[in-house]
Write a protein that binds this DNA or RNA. Structure first.
Lengths: 343, 343
DNA sequence: CAATCGCATGGTAGCGCTGTCAATAATCGT
DNA sequence: ACGATTATTGACAGCGCTACCATGCGATTG
């Protein structure tokens, strides 16, 4: 015996098996598939495990079985409260299951995403949740090679790697802008910050709606690559209003910007919605509480997270959904900030 | 050979070692302590690893070394944007290090926390970050037995399990209320939701300040156990104002509630700060953008997350901080919502 | 009643990596 | 120049668990 490692003070499966009077492999089975044991042994193993306070060693299990019970989640940002809702759904769906989450932050970088995917590949997760549908070709290859259920979340598209749960940002924006048009707003500005792929698609939806109405004017669009914030909303609005003094409404790519616009209007004594209508995106909780209440597009972020994890867990158990792509849709929450305007 | 497992298509350390012409153990050392190798072998192993696209198997490493490179993080809520800032700091501090985060949600339940701590104990994390200082006695025992650096965050207290980084919620609230008193506000209400331990301490700070001024009146306090929200702020304010019509200021336990109060004031044509001063807590970004700008207590949440991880990583390397408890303090951000009031 | 089947259980041999210690090569002091 | 010290390297075994196969047993069947 050339080796004398520090004995880990930890209870092993072997000890549980010995106390229960069964072989280690039977004890092992108890934890993975209790139904395979006879009732008597099942009880014996269970009470032995409880008595010794046995907790399985996940590393050993992962090494021996070449599987883990970890679901990898790739999120582009932790700042954005949109993702905190998704995360809440993810963690809620996880409750009581045997899976755990490995959360990583891509920081809106496709290269970072690719790197993190490769890292996950080496650790054999049981499943994967990735944000968006714009992965690099290399990232797609890695995912396709990964032999585990994968759900793309936040938006939907024609070519899922595996499964998808989200909604059409284009349609949602189109619907919001159409609502303003239907209420006789004509010079509708677009305010955008941190133009990630989903925000880009909202811009496309805005363009489509304005073009369809024959009211498209590129001067109505203002965007910035910097991250979004309430104060940024106020600044973008102020800048755009200087360039387009006859603007009568704004569509904001998110609610922070919409709130910033509301505050800027209050500051300048611009009446909302009489002088300026405001529509936001995501329908964060404060939108309904604002004065006036702010119209927004409700997106089902919590459900997206929940569904994504449910789909992954079901797929691990071999239960694939009928349709690989789930459209969770959106609801336009019409409120006082976009009341009908006299024609 | 009774066994014929499905061969994993994966590159192992042995292959790297063979290609580099060294023993597996030398290749292993390359990844953990490259300086221990001679320059020649180091380069050979490095290029062999790159050529084969070697990625270490973390489960095997964890099993063999009885260590992991995972830092466990226990957070009570994912909804609260306070914690998203902390998380951002945590993930930023992690960048480029070899550690990864295992994030779990205690849902403000001490029992859940205890359960999760036991789970972590079995997985031998390299370090631990836990929220708050009110763990159960059993949780403390588990942590003390854990033989890894532990940082308690969000607040500070006299008896750290290991290390702490936070600030005094009591002092911060005391300072905010004292500010209102100094500006001649007299009937200062307290609005609280989800009364977790830290919010309780803010209430204590409020009480201390009001009592010191001889202005304490329990009727000025309204709280609810339900989670916080902007609309809840409006409701609490409306309720309290009915009970205490001569209230001239409110101290809100967080900024969501403060924003709800501002909106409710706008709805009721109550002028801020002339008829009602507002002070919030945390200084979220929108506070400065509101109309009028809202006074708040800035808390260094991002830095808390960052420092916690830095301290854990330093402690793992044996570099313990001089003082185990770091007070990150707070700053009262005085703005228009609490302008001096004529006496 | 023998042959067959399915079920519960056990034996054996690793999963891929690293701790321990020994062996060798290189460097140093006197 | 020689033994002593230090820097490199390697051999071996095993971390705790599970995949694979074999076994024994009672139930089923023609």
């Amino acid at each position: 015996m050339a080796r004398q490692r520090t004995t880990t003070g930890k209870v092993r499966l072997t000890e549980v098996a010995k106390l229960a009077g069964v072989s280690p492999i039977t004890a092992s089975r108890f934890f993975r598939n209790p139904e395979a044991l006879s009732a008597g042994k099942r009880e014996r193993v269970e009470s032995a495990a409880r008595e010794l306070g046995y907790v399985p060693d996940l590393a050993a299990r992962a090494l021996a079985s070449q599987r883990t019970e970890v679901i990898g989640v790739l999120i582009p940002s932790l700042t954005n409260n949109v993702f905190s809702d998704v995360l809440r759904g993810i963690y809620d769906a996880l409750q009581g299951s045997r899976y755990s989450i490995q959360l990583v932050n891509t920081r809106y970088s496709f290269l970072q995403e690719e790197k993190l995917l490769r890292l996950f590949q080496a650790q054999r997760p049981a499943g994967l949740v990735v944000t968006g549908i714009n992965q690099t070709p290399d990232s797609r290859l890695v995912m396709e090679a990964m032999n585990c259920p994968i759900v793309q979340i936040m938006e939907i598209g024609p070519d899922p790697v595996d499964m998808m749960v989200g909604f059409s940002h284009n349609k949602a924006a189109f619907s919001a802008v159409s609502h303003l048009l239907a209420r006789n707003y004509r010079r509708i500005g677009f305010l955008g910050a941190r133009m990630d792929p989903r925000v880009q698609r909202r811009l496309e939806g805005y363009r489509d709606a304005m073009k369809a109405a024959g009211l498209y004017d590129p001067r109505l669009i203002i965007t910035t690559p910097v991250p979004t914030s309430v104060s940024m909303g106020g600044m973008l609005f102020a800048d755009l209003l200087t360039l387009v003094p006859d603007m009568d409404a704004v569509f904001c790519v998110n609610d922070d910007i919409a709130l910033g616009v509301l505050f800027e209007c209050q500051r300048r004594q611009i009446s909302v919605p009489d002088d300026m209508a405001i529509v936001g995106f995501n329908d964060l909780e404060f939108m309904a509480a604002a004065v006036p209440p702010l119209t927004s597009v409700r997106t089902n972020r919590y459900e997206m997270g929940r569904n994504a994890i449910s789909m992954v867990m079901a797929a691990i158990d071999g239960e694939r959904p009928e349709a690989p792509v789930i459209d969770l849709g959106f609801q336009l929450m019409v409120r006082g900030s976009s009341s009908p305007r006299p024609a």
